[in-house]
Write a protein that binds this DNA or RNA. Sequence first.
DNA 1: CATGAATGAGGTTTCATTCAT
DNA 2: TATGAATGAAACCTCATTCAT
Lengths: 216, 216, 216, 216
Amino acid sequence: MGKGIRTFSSNEGLVSERREHIAKSVAPLFVRKGYGQTSIREIAKACGMSMGHLYYYIGGKEDVLQIMMDYDLHFYVNLVKKIISSSRSLSPTEALIQVIDQFFRATDAAGDFTLFFYQETKNLQPDARKIIMDRERSLVLEFEKLLYRGCQTGEFQIDSIPLVANNIVITGHMWALRRWLLGKICSLDDYIQCQTDYVLKSIASGKKTVLASNKV
Amino acid sequence: MGKGIRTFSSNEGLVSERREHIAKSVAPLFVRKGYGQTSIREIAKACGMSMGHLYYYIGGKEDVLQIMMDYDLHFYVNLVKKIISSSRSLSPTEALIQVIDQFFRATDAAGDFTLFFYQETKNLQPDARKIIMDRERSLVLEFEKLLYRGCQTGEFQIDSIPLVANNIVITGHMWALRRWLLGKICSLDDYIQCQTDYVLKSIASGKKTVLASNKV
Amino acid sequence: MGKGIRTFSSNEGLVSERREHIAKSVAPLFVRKGYGQTSIREIAKACGMSMGHLYYYIGGKEDVLQIMMDYDLHFYVNLVKKIISSSRSLSPTEALIQVIDQFFRATDAAGDFTLFFYQETKNLQPDARKIIMDRERSLVLEFEKLLYRGCQTGEFQIDSIPLVANNIVITGHMWALRRWLLGKICSLDDYIQCQTDYVLKSIASGKKTVLASNKV
Amino acid sequence: MGKGIRTFSSNEGLVSERREHIAKSVAPLFVRKGYGQTSIREIAKACGMSMGHLYYYIGGKEDVLQIMMDYDLHFYVNLVKKIISSSRSLSPTEALIQVIDQFFRATDAAGDFTLFFYQETKNLQPDARKIIMDRERSLVLEFEKLLYRGCQTGEFQIDSIPLVANNIVITGHMWALRRWLLGKICSLDDYIQCQTDYVLKSIASGKKTVLASNKV
DNA sequence: CATGAATGAGGTTTCATTCAT
DNA sequence: TATGAATGAAACCTCATTCAT
């Protein structure tokens, strides 16, 4: 974890282990108080370490942010990967419906982190930001693969797959970013339902889908 | 401007004027460095005021954020209102196309501010946040009116007007929030084109629109 | 009032009038918040003047303290003088009893000011402090005169008149300074009763006094 | 020392030690300049600490005042306790004479602190003020015990023991508070002599005391 | 490996005083 | 006379980071 981050230890395994521990410990703190408002003292306390010891595994406060973001994003992306791969046996349309459903719910569950991600990425150094953004990009890629499958079967007709993939991700994230507003309009269930329809309508090819009709 | 914010002056006009000046002066600074990373000293300098004088018109650093956000959002919302009202003579479909185009371009122009808005709203006190969010809500409302017009003419068929209005706003904002990713996929022109199609497809009623026919 | 304090006005009468106004206006503010915690802005507001105008009649913040103390002490000393002179027709012992009673009650009424006086004298410049202390000294002098009368009639037998005079003043002040403690022991009435006895016992000559016994 | 005051250290012994050091270092500074006129920078310097380090052991400037007052008052009260208990073998009258003598001299020696105490208690928060005042109360209590002993032996005849105890304490304090005036009337030796007489006269029972007889 | 006392620059805020109007 | 906008030094306090133990 966190290659390139300064450490005084030469035991790579231990460093990885401790950094994972840091990532897990610090997440609720960061999400609740914000990165800027959290002090090193609080971080160390949350990690059950002394400040000096914390600096044994990191180079500076920023590194804690990077480690935490990297870890959480890694976790989040893996979750999405699992969701998508577990739908591989379904038809693209059905898979998309299910993936959107689960992705939106996962994003809702990690809602505060999603917001945190948009808010605090700016506090990362360019290098660290690149790493985080690569992970984010890989998230979109997963959706692209799914959409691509639908295009090949002819169920979807899409001009720009990356853009549609982005739209799906964005729409999920927006539930987290604007829940204060969207929550007044509809429930998460409604939101998922509507947005799924919205997406399907816009990418549906004329070709009959295998969806509901086959189920009967 | 900024009713409820402490000032030592009883000259309302002057206070308004100075606060507008502050809002304008501080915007580029905030957008570039972030609210938390900008010191009062820098703010005062950017405003061409002494620190003491700055505090003559505000109650604390937070107020500068509120004033700036309120001002910029006010400006932005007014722009959108103008865009929408100037399209009143067009058919709903044509109006939507044009409004999306101009809204996305305006959002792109104010791109850094849009990102700033999502990042820094958390630093406002509940009272101030409410004011800002009310303005944001009024933005969505403008789009709702336009969509409603389209539903009445029968050109649009929409389950949840607020949700579609939100989606349009969101999609515009996302160009600002994720330009680092979207910029690699397509240009702003492409983005507008695709997203417009995307929206229209999903809300098109079967009824023939006046659009295509006129183009011929 | 406040000779030697800088003013830009050459109209002596006006200056005196304004300073008296300042003294009266500022007293409750000072007593409530303390001198150090009261700002010039608050002082000016309490006086119904602008800050600039206030500085037309004073040389600095300290002068406000001096003016206020001088005025209040002047008022207080005059009160005591009246009390003492109005008892001139009584026998020294009876006079003392009555004077102590009224002096203690007056001090109790001005209790916060008495405390303020002990707390804030240190904030005066040496010159100003001398003026204030001279007034304070004149207070003790009034009691000395009364005691002296009693010694001449033979009712009192006192080694050091100034000391006894001081003790009386001190005992009165202490009710104000330590009301938080004394208030738990007894009421003001009790306090007056006991302290009067205490004083009388300690200065009584063997000679029969004209007191209560004669009254019957 | 100073339970309830924020510290970043969990080493109680160290905290106590440092706070005692702070109390000792800051006393002459506070007494000379007053609490309000002494800056944190000066306090830190007087303690031989950096400002940051000072704040490692205290929560705010006020805490320094509390710590210092508590420490000095503790010291002062202990001194009085020692004085009183060391006179236990004497007759109440002789004990009182000796205790007053030593108490007044001790108060004179700590004169500036006594004045400081009356001036600056107002700057404490209610909680801290209570602590300080409890200590002050315990001071009076020591005198009450002594007076009580005298009443039991029949040497003293006192209506209100607490009040007489207070008067003794007050008279001692007054030498400190009004030395600028009293110093012109008599020396400390004279003051002690007179005030002792004054007290004894007012509490003497008719019963012959063991005092004079023993002297012969 | 581990601790936490120590640093000091820099943060936000206040306020007595002046001066152009 | 009268106003109050403007100044800027100095106040209190925080915190990322280091280093002796």
